[in-house]
Write a protein that binds this DNA or RNA. Structure first.
Lengths: 214, 214
DNA sequence: ACAAAAGCTGACCATTTAGTCTAGTATTTA
DNA sequence: TAAATACTAGACTAAATGGTCAGCTTTTGT
């Protein structure tokens, strides 16, 4: 069910680029930027190391290309929500979208987590400003919902942090989760976890759970 | 308010060891095991590199010593809770303890997060087994609470994952949080965030919030 | 068909890295 | 106070790493 590319009519270069990006995402997720090795990315992509550096001029530019890709993942329907939308629907869908990313792109989530934990040295001011203004806009909408009595009073910042923390946890800490559950999460498990999380967050905000998440 | 050692009567060796451990925790939290550099740990500890390798025979043994320390942090009063305890009290206190760790030992939390994200290559079978049996015990207690009608029906695994995810997020993603809030979290902010989180989780479990967390 | 562009890669290099060695200086102990 | 232990530190090394280069082959557009 995860989105995947149509492999017809793509040049050998595009194919290799995508092989390299996939391999690199895995390696960076496993070892972070400093810890990842170009040779191991090459091995995983089944290409000689020189080939990796042919397509991406340096380890850093490969990392940055990947990071840019990942930041685009964060876009969602919640970005355009306004005060006239139904908060229960919007938030439930946002949570579900986040959970879907954790299921389909766990390594992207891990790479992003590492970048933040390591002090976000590669996220430039432009991204940070953009991110901050996105946040300001969303906080504003949530505040208006609260003012209209649609939502229990709560700090919108903490609400969003909680949504990110819980949903991303299923990707970032999947090793621990699988260990403790004694089995890995199937698609059905993810659906159950999503409903569980929607219920927790929405109930916590004084909202009722939309029927499709019950 | 964070716990700290009494520096009287400690030998120069103990002092240096602790300097090194502090410096290493920071470096490992910033770069992960592979990415951290012994030289930078030494610089941060204000000791020559050779000195670091005098006290800890290798980068790996330093990392392991630190990791062992950190695993002990996870111990809490929740470990001994039984079905006869009040779930609201116990869970609220557990959440508060976790938040306190995020506030006082953010680098420890980050190091642990990196270890898990990177596939837990240094957590041995003994720890994993111990952790799994701890989990089984706690899941059991929560289930009994649910059977007794003290707690709304929910999967105890997800409940614990949610508590960890949200509380650790304040340490692991502090850079992002500070950026988006436009200021860093004070002790007061942490108290507020703790109460907010206790309310979310407990309400989500159908529990009422103990007065000290309101 | 053919030239230009794109793709490929082994050999190589400068730098960085964890860790050693040796030779010393403080500090503790008997 | 002498011997033993604990600590300090510069010089060094072997291995690993990111990256270059020059010459090769394959693909593509006309």
């Amino acid at each position: 069910m995860c989105a995947s590319k149509n492999y017809k009519e793509i040049s050998i270069g595009e194919l290799n680029r995508s092989k390299i990006l996939n391999a690199a995402e895995k390696e960076f997720a496993l070892h972070g930027f400093k810890g990842a090795r170009v040779q191991q990315i090459a091995d995983r992509a089944e290409l000689p190391k020189t080939n990796v550096l042919y397509y991406f001029k340096s380890k850093e530019s490969l990392y940055l290309a990947l990071l840019e890709d990942i930041l685009r993942l964060w876009n969602s329907r919640f970005d355009e929500a306004t005060v006239s939308d139904d908060p229960a629907e919007v938030l439930a869908q946002y949570i579900a979208d986040k959970m879907e990313i954790s299921r389909c792109r766990p390594d992207a989530s891990k790479m992003f987590a590492l970048e933040i934990i390591n002090g976000a040295p590669n996220l430039d001011t432009f991204f940070k400003d953009q991110h901050a203004s996105w946040m300001a806009g969303r906080v504003d909408v949530i505040k208006q919902w609260i003012d209209q009595g649609k939502l229990a009073a709560t700090d919108p910042h903490y609400l969003l942090f909680n949504i990110w923390a819980t949903s991303q946890h299923y990707a970032d800490f999947s090793i621990q989760i699988n260990e403790l559950r004694g089995k890995s999460m199937t698609q059905t498990d993810f659906a159950e976890a999503t409903n569980n999380l929607v219920k927790l967050i929405l109930t916590g905000c004084g909202l009722s759970v939309p029927t499709e998440f019950e």
